[in-house]
């Protein structure tokens, strides 16, 4: 194995890792805020990918141009899911944890059915746009342009999330996370914060979906694999930790890329799963998880 191949794998892992990290960040944001694991997260990613695909196909707009529109749509979808289902799931008296798991899980199946209804089961891909099928060469290493653009956008999204957490709203978010009952006393509308939290979570995974759609196939089942990786990433980084999601996402991307070098491609996920299990064995709350 030459150094070039290794370097290529490391860079590939870095680029993919940033996408994993952003998908995980959306999941982590919602969990950290209200203790709900969104088992429809992969389907939200899939919705964003299909939205990008459809807008590109119908209007011929570049996938990068539709990014803001898809993000706004995903934000609205997140808020709608909160008000339609999650707010109700939070008020049940019995088995609250289990109800949340299965409500979001059922929602995921429903969305998958919807996608199947409108698009059928076949694989589609976006073949046009300014980044499609192009590579950039940097210091002798070839980097596919879509992946490179995606990683830049993901970094930007992380920066934006960091900025949001420093605003007045971000402090309200943090306060709600700390004590969801006490915030009512200082005039914060908990329901409102939760809804925006879901909107932000969905918008975050939406950004990842748009960028992923520029180089990855789109199908109703595309979310499942990314969701599994997102759960591993979030549990590895620690639920509710933004920095944890970033570090764990990059770690997972690297482990996947390096595993693919030594094991058969079909086994490339074994490495990340084993590392995840090893870490949570010694740190049950993940790398950066708060108690």
């Amino acid at each position: 194995m030459t150094a070039d191949i290794l370097l290529q794998a490391v860079i590939g892992g870095l680029l993919m890792g940033l996408i994993y990290a952003l998908v995980a960040a959306g999941l982590s944001l919602i969990f950290g805020l209200m203790d709900v694991v969104n088992f429809a997260h992969g389907e939200l990613l899939m919705v964003a990918m299909f939205a990008t695909f459809s807008l590109w196909q119908l209007t011929g707009l570049d996938p990068l141009m539709v990014l803001p529109l898809v993000v706004v749509l995903m934000f609205a979808l997140g808020v709608a899911i909160y008000h339609g289902l999650i707010a109700r799931a939070l008020t049940v008296q019995f088995n609250r944890g289990m109800v949340q798991i299965f409500v979001t899980f059922g929602l995921g199946i429903f969305i998958r059915g919807l996608a199947q209804f409108f698009y059928g089961g076949e694989f589609r891909s976006i073949t046009g746009g300014m980044v499609a099928n192009r590579t950039v060469q940097m210091a002798g290493i070839y980097v596919p342009l879509p992946q490179f653009a995606a990683s830049l956008v993901c970094l930007g999204a992380f920066a934006l999330l960091l900025v949001i957490s420093r605003t007045e709203f971000g402090r309200a978010l943090e306060a709600t996370r700390e004590d969801r009952d006490a915030v009512a006393l200082i005039g914060i509308n908990r329901d409102h914060i939760f809804a925006i939290g879901w909107g932000l979570g969905a918008a975050t995974v939406g950004i990842a979906g748009v960028m992923l759609a520029t180089f990855y196939y789109v199908s109703p089942n595309v979310g499942a694999n990314f969701a599994t990786i997102a759960y591993v990433t979030v549990a590895l980084g620690g639920f509710g930790s933004l920095g944890g999601a970033l570090v764990a996402g990059l770690l997972i991307g690297e482990i996947e890329a390096l595993t693919a070098l030594v094991l058969e491609p079909s086994l490339k996920q074994v490495g990340m799963f084993v590392v995840y299990l090893a870490v949570v064995l010694f740190r049950p709350r993940g790398l950066f998880g708060r108690l």
Partner: peptide, 24 residues
């Protein structure tokens, strides 16, 4: 038909039962 109507029904049922009768 492969159009996913069965999936929608299955998913909707899980959501509705979980929300309407959380104790089963």
């Amino acid at each position: 038909s492969g159009r996913g109507v069965d999936l929608m029904l299955y998913g909707a049922m899980i959501v509705l039962v979980a929300l309407a009768r959380p104790q089963g």
